[in-house]
């Protein structure tokens, strides 16, 4: 059963917030979506799951140091920068 409490739980996991009005709308939409997703429960649970192809370590590139991107360029896309580092609200 998908309800407003479940939407609140998922919003917390998803780092999203909704107003009370939005919560009702999203819960109604998600209820319909989950009903569609429920079709997968008809599959035989004894069947094997798909496994991504194993990583071929011999085909990977050598683990050697390469030149990094310039810090100046990287922080250019950030909205708050202090001392050439990303700035965030005080954590502790």
């Amino acid at each position: 059963m998908f309800d407003v409490e479940m939407t609140k739980h998922l919003a917390e996991l998803s780092k999203l917030t909704f107003t009370e009005e939005e919560l009702k709308k999203v819960t109604a939409e998600m209820t319909d979506i989950i009903a569609l997703m429920d079709r997968v429960k008809e599959i035989d649970p004894a069947l094997e799951t798909y496994a991504l192809p194993a990583v071929r370590y011999d085909e990977l590139r050598r683990d050697t140091a390469r030149e990094s991107l310039d810090t100046d360029k990287i922080v250019k896309n950030a909205k708050a920068v202090k001392d050439n580092a990303f700035a965030v609200p005080k954590v502790v």
């Binding site: 939407t7 998922l10 998803s14 999203v26 979506i33």
Partner: peptide, 18 residues
């Protein structure tokens, strides 16, 4: 995230985490 993502993206994130 709440201000930056559109409705469909939010629905997919919720569905994925579900």
């Amino acid at each position: 995230r709440s201000e930056g993502f559109g409705d469909e993206v939010k629905r997919r994130i919720l569905l994925g985490n579900y």
